[in-house]
Design a protein around this nucleic acid. Structure first.
Length: 701
DNA sequence: GAATCGTCTGTTTTT
DNA sequence: CAGACGATTC
């Protein structure tokens, strides 16, 4: 490997071997390359791949890192998220905490249901809002490593304690347990701690600014013996404080790890100087910053385009038209274009605009495939195949399709289960073979046969499991359970849901092929922990995502949309100056993803909560000096300037040709905020489209 | 126990 | 405006 292509700071980082090192890596400063080369360097020196642990922020980033090392050095290095790492450790060693190693992992939805259940048991009512709030508080407590006894609010502690007990009875862990229990395990069990301290000699943590207290503590525990910690991060890109992240961890690094060295990477290789300096100017509005000014030897580039539309529809139209224009004029591949927004709900207007112009797009994140109802139903069935104790999966599947076992019957069963001190599914097994197993429990004939069928179904699947592939097991499950009967209840969505299930089977088959030791348990775990951002798309497509999901990515052309007060910065951040600073960092992260072209857009009215709300441009727009900006809004003279190159106008009834939509007829010619605009009827698609003359490039036929 | 209809309530961000 | 939730009826 040649280090010629590295600058002196990068080289120093790559060549660092022993002791703690903090790399303050600004946006676009070649962080990925440094991390990869440094691992390669360790391997060159004879460090074994199994001695190295790399922790990344997402599973996707972890997969990429593994891939790079495999290609570069043909070596298998362990790279995972903190949560996956926790799961790995706990699967091996959680026995010391009195749990079983085949625990299920509950996502937020599952956890909330269980918590709601606990609240009902404690006679605290089953209000969903309360459950949601409580779950958040318990999550915060766990991320701060507070036990049920340790929390200040005693009534919270009571619920928290009950919830932990319930989880244990279900043989399940929630997301936060993967960190909380791992730390607890290592803190309380000397031999286990030593084992893991000895396992990895070199530990690398990416996105260190977004570690919370539990993750920080886990890091400290793991590196305690060898002190070979290589942490990479950028306090200006800390955007997860609401998840307990403390960017102060990065500022305290030298205190926490005595003898630590710090290297600053401040040369940016990604963006044009216009984009970079505008981003610098924005982030400088944050007080108390660790001073770091990114610079670039690159060209000035084009100015950042600002567009302020009348409403979100117009904003989206502008973006769609501009994408077509830029893709055509500058031959930018669709994969190299992205739209970032603050909230998932904003994607809709852009989807509509892109859809109507036949621009391929994919949404990264958002409603995950695995969060869909039908997928979770199937996965719950599979979890029950593994475990008798998984209450949440039982409750989810027992009446799918209808088996006559509604809430009232389930209450009775739950009560009987508590009385007999049996997991509810075990109780059902007993009842299936002996209807009089519980004294005084009366089920109707229909209910009893429904319950018996359900138990038999699970047993059949358990028997079949060893001889079947996962996708075959799913097929079996669908067939035997008559799950499709349930889908038929909603004919509107049935086709979609069926296709999703087919896709799940496809993914299962694919996953099983790729894996050396595929197990059902591992399959379920990976699906639960998988970040929503791991979609594989075959066709080139524009990427739509939240600002949070944009972290770590880069695109030639970026649209940062919805830059309005109360949206970005979000209204919920207003009461707290620190939250506003985080919103500013979020905006900064978005801007610095752009290589060549950056668009900042907003709209004057936005349809929210059922009505049009007037919006004000974001303060962040005003914090960027105008010398980096050019205005493309309808009211600006800029638009006329662009319009001068318009082709001669067409008149109504004239035949025209569009490179994408084909032959069409002008229905109407008029002036809109985009200048000369046509409504054109296209024969091919039998639709009328509104096109701006200056973008659409219509030819006469 | 299930289906249907109205009412209400709400939108940050995610491993 | 949606989607979730609860009350009412079958």
């Amino acid at each position: 490997m040649s280090t010629l292509e590295l600058n002196p700071q990068q080289e120093a980082a790559v060549n660092h071997v022993e002791g703690p090192l903090l790399v303050l890596a600004g946006a676009g400063s070649g962080k990925t390359r440094v991390v990869t080369y440094r691992i390669a360097k360790l391997l060159d020196m004879g460090v074994l791949p199994s001695d190295i642990l790399a922790v990344t922020f997402t599973n996707k980033a972890a997969a990429e890192m593994r891939n790079r090392i495999r290609i570069l050095k043909n070596a298998q290095v362990l790279a995972s998220t903190f949560h996956s790492l926790g799961s790995r450790i706990l699967r091996e060693s959680i026995g010391a905490l009195g749990y079983k190693t085949d625990f299920a992992i509950y996502d937020e939805e599952d956890s909330e249901k269980l918590l709601k259940n606990c609240l009902e048991q404690l006679q605290l009512g089953g209000d969903k809002k309360v459950a949601k709030e409580m779950r958040q508080q318990i999550s915060t407590a766990k991320n701060n490593l507070e036990s049920p006894d340790g929390v200040v609010d005693k009534s919270l502690g009571l619920v928290y304690g009950a919830y932990q007990t319930a989880l244990k009875e279900c043989n399940a862990l929630d997301f936060d347990d993967l960190l909380y229990l791992t730390v607890k395990l290592l803190q309380e069990h000397e031999t286990v701690r030593q084992e893991y301290q000895n396992r990895w000699l070199f530990i690398l943590i990416d996105e260190y600014q977004d570690t919370n207290f539990a993750q920080y503590s886990l890091t400290k525990l793991l590196v305690e013996k060898h002190q070979n910690l290589f942490a990479v991060g950028d306090p200006d890109q800390s955007i997860y404080s609401w998840r307990g992240a403390r960017y102060q961890n990065i500022l305290n690094f030298e205190r926490d790890f005595p003898g630590a060295k710090t290297i600053v990477l401040d040369q940016n290789y990604r963006s044009t100087n216009n984009i970079l300096q505008a981003s610098n100017a924005l982030i400088e509005h944050n007080p108390d910053r660790y001073e770091k000014k990114l610079w670039s030897a690159g060209s000035e580039g084009e100015k950042i385009t600002v567009f302020i539309g009348q409403n979100e529809r117009q904003e989206a139209e502008f973006v769609a038209l501009r994408i077509l224009k830029m893709a055509a004029d500058r031959s930018i591949p669709l994969d190299d274009i992205a739209i970032f927004y603050r909230t998932n709900a904003q994607s809709r207007a852009f989807e509509d605009a892109l859809l109507s112009r036949r621009i391929n797009y994919s949404i990264i994140g958002g409603l995950s495939f695995y969060a869909r109802r039908e997928i979770k139903d199937i996965l719950s069935y599979l979890r029950l195949v593994i475990s008798n104790t998984d209450l949440i999966s039982f409750l989810r599947t027992i009446n799918l399709p209808k088996r006559g076992l509604g809430p009232a019957a389930l209450d009775k069963l739950a009560e009987a289960a508590a009385q007999k001190k049996l997991p509810i599914f075990t109780l059902c097994e007993e009842l299936a073979s002996d209807p009089n197993f519980v004294h005084g429990l009366k089920l109707s004939a229909k209910q009893h046969s429904g319950l018996t069928n359900y138990v038999r179904l699970i047993h059949r699947l358990r028997d079949a499991r060893p001889s079947l592939k996962i996708h075959e097991l799913i097929a079996e499950l669908i067939a035997e359970s008559n799950y499709l009967d349930f889908l038929k209840e909603d004919p509107e969505t049935m086709q979609d849901r069926k296709e999703n299930i087919d896709e799940l089977m496809g993914k299962a088959a694919e996953w099983e092929e790729e894996r050396e030791h595929p197990t059902l348990q591992l399959f379920l775990e990976e699906l639960t922990l998988r970040s929503t951002a791991e979609e594989k798309t075959d066709l080139p497509s524009i990427k739509l995502m939240t600002l949070h999901n944009s972290k770590g990515l880069e695109f030639s052309l970026v649209f940062l949309v919805g830059l309005e007060e109360d949206l970005c910065p979000h209204i919920n951040s207003k009461d707290n100056p620190e939250s506003i600073e985080e919103e500013r960092r979020l905006c900064y992260v978005g801007m610095t993803r752009a290589r060549k072209y950056l668009y900042l857009t907003a709209s004057i009215y936005r349809f929210m909560w059922g009505t049009f709300r007037p919006m004000r441009p974001s303060r962040f727009l005003k914090e960027i000096p105008v010398r980096f900006l050019q205005n493309s809004s309808p009211t600006s003279p800029m638009i006329q300037e662009e319009s001068t190159s318009d082709p001669e106008g067409f008149s109504e009834g004239e035949k025209v040709y569009h490179h994408q939509f084909g032959a069409g007829t002008i229905q109407k010619a008029y002036h809109s905020s985009f200048g000369l605009t046509y409504d054109v009827y296209f024969d091919d698609s039998d639709t009328t489209r509104t096109l701006a003359a200056k973008f659409a490039k219509l030819k006469s036929l």
